[in-house]
């Protein structure tokens, strides 16, 4: 094979690669759009009026997740499944976002940590790599960490809205999350960087809980997390 032929061959490969990436990028863009819509719906829980409508908002968000599922199904057709990690970077961000949104919805509904299986179901993807488009464990954890900072915000705003018990429940939840993360041996990677931010969320919620308890505003202070 001559040098020119060889480079022609490689070029053909690179072109195909480029095309696949272009296709993926298009779908991911739509996916990001939908994720933003869901975020907008959920953001309104921070408003005083939004607190009463939490079930409503969640139902609406769940509806929007249907769209997410169809887009992800579309994304799955754009590349060969065994090359998931080759193009992983393209949808990593939006997938983490979606995990966060799903986890947030589940938390608002049931005040529990969404399992990886549940997220996968909400997004219409797999947990195990062998079975197709799956949810990488690091992406799941990153999504959960985004939710933690959202919850610390929610704790502050729920006090403003006059809901004094919620911060206590959030505090318990975040603490449990924190000890969970402490079990992990993280490498010096983006996930680790994000995890380092968790302690500030913990701190902030603890301050809120402190403020409430010294003023006697937290009624069932001891076992607030029981629910």
């Amino acid at each position: 094979m001559s040098v020119t032929e060889m480079f022609g061959y490689i070029q053909g490969f690179l072109d195909a690669d480029q095309e696949t990436r272009e296709d993926i990028r298009k779908v991911v863009q739509i996916l990001e759009q939908t994720a933003r819509e869901i975020l907008t719906v959920l953001q309104s829980v921070h408003q005083p009026s939004g607190f009463k409508e939490i079930p409503n908002k969640c139902a609406k968000a769940r509806e929007l997740f249907c769209t997410v599922r169809t887009h992800i199904a579309d994304l799955k057709t754009k590349f060969p499944m065994e090359q998931y990690y080759r193009f992983h970077e393209h949808w990593r961000f939006v997938l983490q976002r979606s995990v966060f949104l799903a986890a947030f919805v589940v938390y608002l509904e049931s005040e529990a940590l969404v399992t990886r299986e549940e997220v996968a179901k909400i997004l219409g993807i797999e947990v195990v790599r062998e079975r197709g488009f799956h949810l990488d464990v690091e992406d799941y954890l990153a999504g959960v960490l985004i939710m933690a900072s959202e919850l610390s915000r929610l704790a502050v705003n729920s006090v403003t809205a006059g809901d004094y018990n919620r911060p206590l429940r959030i505090s318990n939840f975040i603490n449990e999350l924190d000890s969970g993360f402490r079990l992990l041996n993280l490498k010096n990677d983006p996930l680790r960087k994000r995890y380092d931010g968790l302690k500030y969320d913990v701190k902030k919620i603890e301050e809120v809980v402190y403020d409430l308890s010294i003023r006697g505003l937290a009624k069932e202070s001891e076992s607030g997390g029981g629910k």
Partner: peptide
């Protein structure tokens, strides 16, 4: 939660 993180 802890059980899940053990797996992770």
């Amino acid at each position: 939660v802890m059980a899940a993180f053990k797996v992770f």
